[in-house]
Every structure is written in structure tokens, then in C-alpha cells.
Design a protein around this nucleic acid. Sequence first.
DNA 1: ACGATCTGATACCGTCGAGTGTCAAATATG
DNA 2: CATATTTGACACTCGACGGTATCAGATCGT
Lengths: 205, 205
Amino acid sequence: MTDSSPTSTPESTRVYGGVSAEQRREERRQRLIDAGLQLFGTRGVAAVSIVDICAEAKLIKRYFYESFTSIDQLAAAVFEQVTDRLVERVVPAIVAGGGQDPRPALTAYVTGALADPRVARLLAVEGRTGALARYGAGFATRAVELWFGFSPAVEGQDEAGLRLRAYAFAGALTEIVLAWHDGVLELTVEQVIDELVDIFKKLVP
Amino acid sequence: MTDSSPTSTPESTRVYGGVSAEQRREERRQRLIDAGLQLFGTRGVAAVSIVDICAEAKLIKRYFYESFTSIDQLAAAVFEQVTDRLVERVVPAIVAGGGQDPRPALTAYVTGALADPRVARLLAVEGRTGALARYGAGFATRAVELWFGFSPAVEGQDEAGLRLRAYAFAGALTEIVLAWHDGVLELTVEQVIDELVDIFKKLVP
DNA sequence: ACGATCTGATACCGTCGAGTGTCAAATATG
DNA sequence: CATATTTGACACTCGACGGTATCAGATCGT
């Protein structure tokens, strides 16, 4: 049975253009994710088609289906990558704060999310709609729960009330970032962070 | 020129089924808006077609175009009606609070928005996407600005900081309402309102 | 150089929704 | 009753998109 390869897909196993098959597939996948961030973060997930993604990524449809099966799956991958990168920045900052000082974490989050309006929109708005809704009520909520996971457990305290405060702060954080990008807040990043630190301390005593 | 009516649209001017032409058109329009609230508030605006609306409203397509020209226009009408009704409830409550006590206004808002999850989703999530985005960054923001319009002007104070606090509270309010509907907050309406009053007083000193 | 395979452009088909038109039944008017 | 209008059910065209296939040119392995 030397002829173990029937007339099926070539499977992509050869070096091409100097890069391996695996690398090429990964690069294409990343270009699709980049295109997704660009289009999802500006037009919104619902207003983007597979053809749009391919045009933005300068790839043909075949390579979309090479890595994803639907727009929603791509959106999930984009969301996941964006959140992962943010977590990579925020977690060390939380550790730096030692579960006491919220400033490092808030600085990391704000500079990470404020820097790119596409990321902000993806996290705050698109994260609640369609197939992304399964990822939980926005990223800010997860970030706050992350914080609570690192902060010392408060014994016997008002659990439900504490949880409500967490959601409150998450919502405040999200709304402020969106307002900032809308240009209605005439404050520097430092001033915004100062206010956030103050709000955090007031909300989570 | 007695023959002033060419072979155009019948224009609907006759009594039918006991109701006037004007009333019939208004009833159909309202049924479309009701269908819009139901479908937009559950599936989201982007996932609803004109055919869906007509099926839900039990009307044929002709009558959709009688009152609206696109899904987005219907969504705007639904959004407008929902916000108008909420304003009708909240404004008297603000007046009742005399610009000092936020409790009446918060009670009116929460019972008005918490009562119907479709309204909550429409205001908090759908209000930021697609054609609804032009209505401003969610209804909560407008509600807070409404509050500030009624509250006594604070002379020479940190305008930008105050504005940031308003957005912060609006975001907190929105997030809490959404979390409530998701069932993750095991609190009574009264407890939620108590917390909101407390948060408001802390955020807007 | 030659065959295998990788890539890009394009064509093709089926489906779905927007928007318009047709026709018969129901109802009002004279 | 006879005619005009209103209404509902349905058919139709057109374009966009999802998904698949075809084909020529580029690149690699031998």
C-alpha cells in the first residue's frame, strides 16, 4: 500500500515561500483575526460578512474555512485573543497591587483598552450580542471577578451586596471607557485613572 | 377638475371594520412596534428581518412599508417609544425628589426597566449598535444627564470630573440591571434600589 | 526539467431577505 | 344589488451571501 494518499486534500505539508505549512496556516489565521478585530471593532459583528473578512485580510474564502467555520466562530476567536492579551497585562498589575492597591490594575486595564477603540467596542458592546453573549456579560465583569479572586476573602460579609458592587464598578469602568472614546470626557488618561481609583475605593470598601 | 383623484393609491380614507382609516393605520403601526419590542428585545435588532416582524405582528409586508421604510427605522421608533414611556415615569419622580433625594427617580427607573427584560436589553445593549447608536451612548447616560439638568447647578466645580461621575453611575446602573436580569444578583428590588441610592450618593457628592 | 502541490482569481449554485405585483375575499357606499 | 376600497395570501424579481468547485500560475521536491 505505497499509494496511501487517495485523491483528497493535499493537507498542506510542504515549505512554501520559505515558511513551513504550519506557519503559513497560522499566519493566515492571524490575518483573519486581525481583519476581524478591524471590522468587528468598527462596523460591529452583525454587519460583517465572510467576504468582507477575506477582502480585509487579503485572502480567499478557502482560507477562511481552513481556520473557521462561521463568522461567529471567528468573532469568538477575536474576542478570545483580545481578552487574553488584556488579561496578560492586567494580572501582573493585580499582583503588583498586592490585592490592596487597585491603581496598577486599573492603569493596565485603561491603557490596554483605551489604547484601541476597536478593542473597547468589542469588549463593551459586541461582547454582549449574538454569539459573543455566551462569553459572559462583557469583559469588565470578568475583570472585576478576577480582582475579587485575587483580593483577600472577606469572611461572613454581604456576599450579594459585594457582588452588586463589583458589577457596578464594572459597568462604570465600561461606560467611562466608551465615553472617553466618544470624546465627551475632556480628561487626560492620568486623570481618568485617578477618578477610577477613587471610584473603586468608594464602591468597594 | 372634479376628477382630482388619478389612478393612484386608494389612500385609505374609508371606515372599515368599524374604525377609521387613521385609527387602522395607527393600530397597525403600534402592532409593528410591539412586534419590534418583542423581537429586538429578545433576538437583537441585527437578527430580525422585516418578514419576522410581519409574522410577529400578524400583518403583511405592505403594512410594514406603510409606516416604516426599513428595519432600522422601526428600531428607532421602538427605541423612541420605550424611552419616552420611561421618561414619563422618571421625570415626575425626579421632581418628587426635589433635586435632592435620588431614591424616587431610581425607584422609577429600576421598576420601569427591571420590569421588562426586553426593555432592559434594548436600552442597555441594542441602543449602542447599528442605527440605534445615533441615539447616544445608551439610555442610562441620558437619564443621568436628565438628573443633572434638574439638580441645582454646582458653580465653578470640576465640570469634567462631574461628568465622568455621571457616566460612571449610568454604567453602574445599566450593568446592575443587566446582571439582575441574568439572575446573578440574588437581591430583592428594594435591596437593589437601596444599594443604588447608596452608590449614587457616594459617586455624586 | 518535470511533476506535485500551493495559491489566487473567478465561476457557480442554493438560499434568504428586500421590495413589488397580482388576485380573490371581505367590507363599505350608493 | 352593484361598485369601489380595504385586506390578506401568495408569487415574483433581484441582489447578497454562504459554500463549493474550477483553472491558471507560482513554487517546491527530485
